[in-house]
């Protein structure tokens, strides 16, 4: 077996995970191999700048603009790059559309591949053993864990992200959202609806519906 050791170097670090991270960060910083300010910048990026609001923008635009949607589904990369949504873990995007006949759902059974520029860092459940193990074999039972039940005539297509291609689900536009502008539509698009473990939310308040 390649590179398999019985004595992994990581065991030399403190076993408590928070202390293990801290110890390695300290060692690397002392040697000038990492810059703590750069770490802060990375964290700030994914905590505050890049997240599911990006994907929701794309979905809202696709719901509003048929030509945009057609281009997005045909070849997502140039369309997303035009909007500035490109980068690490989103270099090769494919957008898959939910219809009454087909529901799409995304998983990475081997690790935790996820479209970072559009959805940010994946939630804990996406990285959990239970989701990775079950999504491909029993997607409908997994959907039930999220409170979603599909009609019997809707087929489920699960996308296992085994390469560097990243998938974004284009959920179905909720009924009663006619006349909504892109901001109002984006508010109906949850992160999970773009992974395929939720549906886009129906409009709730009458004030929203009258926009």
């Amino acid at each position: 077996m390649p590179h398999d050791h019985s004595d992994h170097p990581h065991a030399l670090l403190p076993s408590d995970p928070a202390l293990r991270v801290k110890a390695l960060e300290t060692i690397l910083t002392r040697k000038g191999l990492i810059e703590p300010a750069a770490l802060d910048e990375i964290i700030d990026t994914y905590q505050n700048k890049i997240g599911p609001q990006n994907g929701a923008r794309v979905v809202a635009k696709a719901w509003s603009d048929p030509a945009f949607k057609a281009a997005l589904l045909a070849d997502a990369d140039p369309v997303l790059a035009d909007l500035g949504y490109y980068g690490r873990q989103g270099e090769h995007m494919v957008v898959v559309e939910n219809t009454p006949a087909q529901h799409n759902m995304v998983v990475c059974t081997l690790c935790s591949c996820y479209p970072w520029p559009l959805l940010g860092i994946p939630p804990g459940w996406y990285k959990s053993d239970a989701y990775r193990a079950r999504a491909v074999r029993e997607p409908r039972r997994v959907l039930a864990d999220f409170g979603v039940t599909l009609p019997a005539d809707t087929a489920v297509r699960v996308w296992d992200s085994t390469a560097e291609v990243r998938y974004l689900v284009l959920p179905m536009r909720p009924d009663d959202s006619e006349g909504f502008d892109e901001d109002a539509l984006a508010a109906l698009v949850s992160r999970d609806s773009m992974i395929g473990t939720a549906l886009a939310s129906p409009p709730q308040s009458s004030s929203e519906a009258s926009v």
Binding site: Y46, Q47, G51, V107, T109, L110, G120, I121, P123, G124, W125, S128, D129, A130, Y131, R132, A133, R134, A135, V136, R137, V142, D145, F146, D160, D192, T197
Partner: peptide
């Protein structure tokens, strides 16, 4: 682990959970 049997339910994160 794709397809493995025996894992429990998937537990969605609460609304507003931190990144």
């Amino acid at each position: 682990m794709g397809g493995r049997i025996g894992d429990g339910p998937v537990v969605p994160d609460p609304v507003g959970a931190p990144v």
